[in-house]
Design a protein around this nucleic acid. Sequence first.
DNA 1: TATACATTTAAACAATTATCTAAATATCGA
DNA 2: TCGATATTTAGATAATTGTTTAAATGTATA
Lengths: 92, 92
Amino acid sequence: MNESFKALADPTRRQIIRLLRDKDRTAGEIAEFFNMSKPSISHHLNALKTAGLVQDERQGQFIRYTLNTTVLDEVLSWLLELTDGNRDKKGK
Amino acid sequence: MNESFKALADPTRRQIIRLLRDKDRTAGEIAEFFNMSKPSISHHLNALKTAGLVQDERQGQFIRYTLNTTVLDEVLSWLLELTDGNRDKKGK
DNA sequence: TATACATTTAAACAATTATCTAAATATCGA
DNA sequence: TCGATATTTAGATAATTGTTTAAATGTATA
């Protein structure tokens, strides 16, 4: 959970998530959207992967990244617990 | 928006938010929950305030902190845009 | 199998962040 | 106004993070 929030704290990583919302993309395709070296993007992708926010799968020469909405849902739940009226404050 | 995500990236700050969800509290009351110096807590409170996640109001000797759910709602919206089916990808 | 392409890993470095102690500011009550 | 209490601000430092270039790994193809 902490990893997820930390992963979301960076604007580049949030943008990557948006890109993957539209469709799966390879690391190179993702990198093209940014003014940043490929190793940097790779690093950000790894942060997202560690957090469980994306998954990767090698397809031949390429590595294809996919959004994992499950973890996003968990973050959503955490936030919803705060704004919702129910006060059972379960400490997740 | 970036400030909000960065503020949420720290576990101490998330815990502070949870504490404020239950009720408003003074800086000192908040600090009692943590194994950390008061200046550190003050620093975290300031980060939350800068992000707009909390508001503060002096009450005599004390400073009382309040949760501002409006900004939390904005973060929620950002996340909901990702998980929802609608694909109008407005770049907020 | 040699070369090119896609991507990651390694190593270094700068910038940011979290933390502490000490000092400053603000308010209250005697 | 003085002393106690509540909190923040300042200054220092250690840890973490984001970035780069160079090298390594894995795959495809001629």
